[in-house]
Design a protein around this nucleic acid. Structure first.
Lengths: 226, 226
DNA sequence: TCATAAAAAATTGTCGACAATATTGATACC
DNA sequence: GGTATCAATATTGTCGACAATTTTTTATGA
């Protein structure tokens, strides 16, 4: 299922040029260095990276399959536009998928995963005490949480869909609409309760809490946008 | 979001060679003419279609993004294997996603969609009366139903994920594990109830019924496999 | 006979060039 | 001045060839 992990592991010794281009461009699009909605010029980008158009095109196609680009025949590629509708769509899908991930994680309840989740939570707790109140809660912390829970679901399709296909778009929205800390301490408490439900093996509750958590996050964003 | 519709619309006058290859190969993989798990030889396939390897490779990459192929650097592409685990994973994701689609469809409740759903259902009813008892319920009928509901959700990401990314894998399993009619009349009644809930604007119920429907379908398959 | 290593063959990754199509700019016309 | 038509330009789609890597075959030794 080609799960690449969150941050491109540069470990892979034999990665193709196309893959490196893909990883680089993905970062630039997510962080907005290549602006949303802008047209991609194949010759220009190829020159910039000293690569052939062929290799670049392969990278572009992968970006398309991530939903970061849109390509039209004989016209070319554009970075996707960021829209309110698009963001809401994204959160609706996340609600469904991560809710399920939570349920599955609770039904599995592997010792390792439980341990990792607990450790992660206490790391976050310390961080929170330090920077109390403030947006301790770097997006990365939040991502950690969601990422690990999805992993614990053990459903490869679910993992791939969320971690490879959806999260980069989420990050793109966060970077570019600049919605940093998603509700600081409150989010932490919610995370905490979700993990408790998973530890208790209560899949139904875990799912419900996660869905509520994501819905709250979405509403929070909705408010900020007005 | 590049929604291609269920069956490739050959309308598009200017479709690229790569796209035609993609559509053809997708069919052959889904229907098992290219067997699951088999290795793809780029030179061989390119010769067969009188195409260059470049165009073929583009098609292969799209197939990879559908989850029908797995590619490894310097090694090549293989058709995915069909496994029990993979099938269950698929149904878990469908349960989450189509449940959400139902909820959204119920919350929208556009006149057009409701009309279409009703018409479709009565078409299926007639068909069922004709071939009573028998597996009237061609897979296609079932697909019709799920497909239309997803469309009615109006969530482009959800639509794309289900209709472009997941359904081809579902069809692949159906073709190759030969699980034709999913529970004939019973499925019809369930479909009927789901549409009623949507018409009533009861998103919560619609979601619940759809999830139960898919879970039942999954268990039905699980039993057949033993 | 089996295991290991080297050589040969085949396959994939990358590139630059040409053809087909779309976009831009210039020109003529109302 | 604005609009439509056509030429010029630039971009994308497709191809065949070469380089890098993997797989297969062959050769060698215990």
């Amino acid at each position: 299922m080609g799960l690449t992990g969150m941050n491109s592991p540069l470990r892979e010794p034999h990665q193709s040029l196309a893959e490196r281009l893909f990883l680089t461009l993905r970062g630039e699009i997510v962080e907005g260095h290549i602006p949303a909605g802008s047209k991609i010029s194949e010759p220009e980008l190829a020159r910039r990276f000293n690569a052939s158009r062929g290799s670049l095109r392969e990278a572009l196609m992968r970006l398309e399959s991530l939903g970061l680009l849109e390509r039209r025949v004989n016209v070319g590629a554009r970075v996707v536009e960021l829209s309110e509708r698009g963001l809401l769509d994204l959160y609706e899908v996340r609600e469904a998928l991560e809710g399920m991930a939570c349920r599955l994680a609770a039904e599995q309840r592997s010792e390792e995963d439980l341990l990792e989740l607990r450790q992660m939570l206490s790391r976050h707790e310390q961080q929170e005490e330090l920077q109390a109140g403030k947006a301790y809660f770097q997006p990365e912390g939040d991502f950690d949480f969601h990422f690990r829970i999805v992993q614990a679901s053990k459903n490869d399709l679910l993992i791939d869909t969320l971690c490879n296909r959806l999260y980069y778009r989420v990050r793109m929205y966060r970077y570019q609409l600049g919605m940093a800390s998603p509700r600081a301490q409150r989010a932490f408490r919610e995370h905490s309760h979700i993990i408790e439900a998973i530890e208790a093996g209560d899949g139904e509750l875990a799912e419900l809490l996660m869905r509520r958590h994501i819905r709250a996050s979405r509403q929070n964003i909705e408010n900020k946008l007005r």
